[in-house]
Nucleic acid binder design. Sequence first.
DNA 1: ACAGGATCCTGGGGGC
DNA 2: TGCCCCCAGGATCCTG
Length: 299
Amino acid sequence: MIPAADSTPSALAKGERLNVHYNQVMPELPEVETVVRDLRPLLCGRRIAAVQAGRKALRRRWSKPWGTVVQGRPVLGIHRRGKWIVIELGGPYLVIHLGMTGQLRVVPASAPTPPHTHLIFTLDDDLQLRFRDVRRFGSATLFPDAAAVQAFFAAADLGPEPFDLDPAYWHGRVTAAHRCLKAILLDQRVVAGVGNIYADEALFEARLHPTLLGDTLRRPQTAKLRQAVVTVLTRAIDKRGSSIRDYVGGSGEKGNYQREFLVYGRTSQPCLRCRRPIERIVLAGRSTHFCPGCQRKPR
DNA sequence: ACAGGATCCTGGGGGC
DNA sequence: TGCCCCCAGGATCCTG
């Protein structure tokens, strides 16, 4: 078992309404992209000297001889695919999902180990890559080679990246589905990387009601939705880069998470565009926020 | 086949 | 003060 240090999470600022229960970033595509970009210069070219694994398994159990497989391996690259982080280890690949509360950090080996740290990779220069995940919704899996990683994504039927969406493909997938737009956006088989927050934000950006059924949309609407997904994610990646810059550095964990969401987490607050109160409903088992003025309800 | 629901997991917040 | 219940979410498994 990895020893736990006495560090407690920082308290939420008073009056904080966004992400009421959380004092950390919920990782969706923009957060994962930021983590990958930040980790790349810290990890690439280094070598893994040792691995420590916690006793409690994550949702996807790692293969047994972790240490022997990974030990001595160089980190050749780190990439993102949807919300998955793929680390290339000169042969094997490490595939990580941050789930809801997962964190990947590079810190000095001497830094205290916070609770819920499940994996520690000691690098060859007194730094450690640490995977921490309070709720253990995340996963870390070792694959023998690139083909095995591809097979894993193929088996999950992981859809294309949102930035590469072919208009015809997108229109076909959306209009083929007899279910609400919110559920379609959350479906990783249709498009990879969109989560609950950015699904709501994208629908607001496109001014489409979340309960609209996919098979009722016409081409201009699917085009608008596709563009909205790209716009919202691009904007978030640009902002997240600065808002969680110290995510990796380890020193100031607080960061300032004033996110500029227009609907997510803003239930009952006035729409920043039309001032009508944002509404919250549950769709596909997920809280869904929308503006009844900007996103007109279908008949 | 497809859509929707339950499940996992934990800490914080609200209610009593 | 302190307990208990509820809530949040992504992926996956299960049901209709």
